[in-house]
C-alpha cells in the first residue's frame, strides 16, 4: 500500500535522516567510502555530494516506477537504476571536477555498493510517491554528508593541521584561499590520515552521538519525572485509605 503524499511526515523524515537513523553513525552503512576518502574535507565533501545526488536521483526514479516493478525483480531493477545514476554522476565529475575525480578514484563507482542507497530505495522510495522520496534521498544523503565532512575535518585537522585545503578541486578557483591553517609548521600526524585514524575517528563520532543521545534522554526523563509523581497512586501499606 503506498502512502499518499499528505500522510508523509517530513519532520520525522528529517529527524531520522539527520540523526536518529543516520546512514553512517546508526545504520553503519556505506562505511567503505567513509573510511577511505575522508582524509580531507574536500574529498569527503566531494564524495558526500556525489552520494547525495545519487540518492536523490535513484530515489526519484525508483519511486516513479514503483507501481510497475513486480516484487520479484525489484531489487535487480533498483540496482540497475542506481548503477545508471552513478555512472551519470561519475561522468559529470569526470567532466567538471577532474582532479577530484582522480583523487577519489575507484570510490565513485563504488557508490553503487553503498547499502544506504539500495536500502532507502527499497525501504522508502519503492513505497512512496516521488516528492517524499526525493526529500528522503536528500535528507539521508545530507546526514551521510555531514558525517563525512565531520570525519574529514577531524582527520585533516589532526593529520595535516589544516581545514578546507584544496577546496578549489570542487568549487573552482575562487575556493583557493579558503584554506585554514590551524597549526603553523605542523609536523603532521600520519596515523590520522591512514586508515587506523579513520576507524578511531568514526568510533569517536559514534561514541559522541551515543553520549549525546543518552544525555538527552536522561534530561527528558528528569524533566518529566516531577509531573508523573502526582498522577499515580501507589499503595505501599496493606490498608486502603
Amino acid at each position: 500500500m503506498s502512502e499518499t503524499a499528505s500522510t508523509v511526515d517530513y519532520a520525522t523524515l528529517t529527524r531520522n535522516g539527520l540523526w536518529k537513523n543516520n546512514a553512517a553513525t546508526v545504520q553503519l552503512l556505506g562505511l567503505c567510502p567513509l573510511l577511505a576518502v575522508t582524509g580531507t574535507v574536500v574529498n569527503a565533501l566531494g564524495l558526500g555530494l556525489a552520494t547525495m545526488a545519487v540518492l536523490m536521483a535513484s530515489n526519484m526514479t525508483v519511486s516513479l516506477i514503483r507501481n510497475v516493478v513486480t516484487p520479484a525483480v525489484r531489487l535487480p531493477a533498483f540496482v540497475m537504476i542506481i548503477a545508471a545514476v552513478v555512472t551519470v554522476i561519475e561522468m559529470v565529475m569526470q567532466a567538471f571536477t577532474f582532479e577530484l575525480y582522480e583523487i577519489l578514484g575507484i570510490f565513485i563507482p563504488l557508490i553503487v555498493t553503498n547499502c544506504a542507497i539500495l536500502g532507502r530505495a527499497d525501504a522508502f522510495a519503492s513505497k512512496n510517491s516521488p516528492a517524499p522520496a526525493v526529500y528522503d534521498g536528500f535528507i539521508m544523503g545530507l546526514g551521510f554528508l555531514l558525517v563525512l565532512v565531520l570525519l574529514g575535518g577531524m582527520r585533516e585537522a589532526v593529520g595535516e593541521g589544516t581545514l578546507f585545503a584544496n577546496m578549489h578541486l570542487l568549487f573552482g578557483d575562487m575556493a583557493r584561499d579558503w584554506t585554514l591553517t590551524l597549526v603553523g609548521d605542523y609536523r603532521g600526524f600520519l596515523v590520522a590520515i591512514l586508515p587506523p585514524g579513520a576507524f578511531i575517528g568514526l568510533g569517536l563520532i559514534i561514541a559522541g552521538k551515543n553520549v549525546i543521545d543518552r544525555w538527552a534522554s536522561e534530561r527528558a526523563k528528569r524533566l518529566k519525572a516531577p509531573m508523573e509523581k502526582g498522577s499515580r497512586r501507589v499503595r505501599t501499606t496493606g490498608s486502603v485509605s
Binding site: 609536523r187 600526524f189 600520519l190 596515523v191 590520522a192 591512514l194 587506523p196
Partner: peptide, 8 residues
C-alpha cells in the same frame, strides 16, 4: 606502532 607509522 601508532608512533612508528605516524612519525617515521
Amino acid at each position: 606502532v601508532l608512533l612508528l607509522i605516524s612519525f617515521p
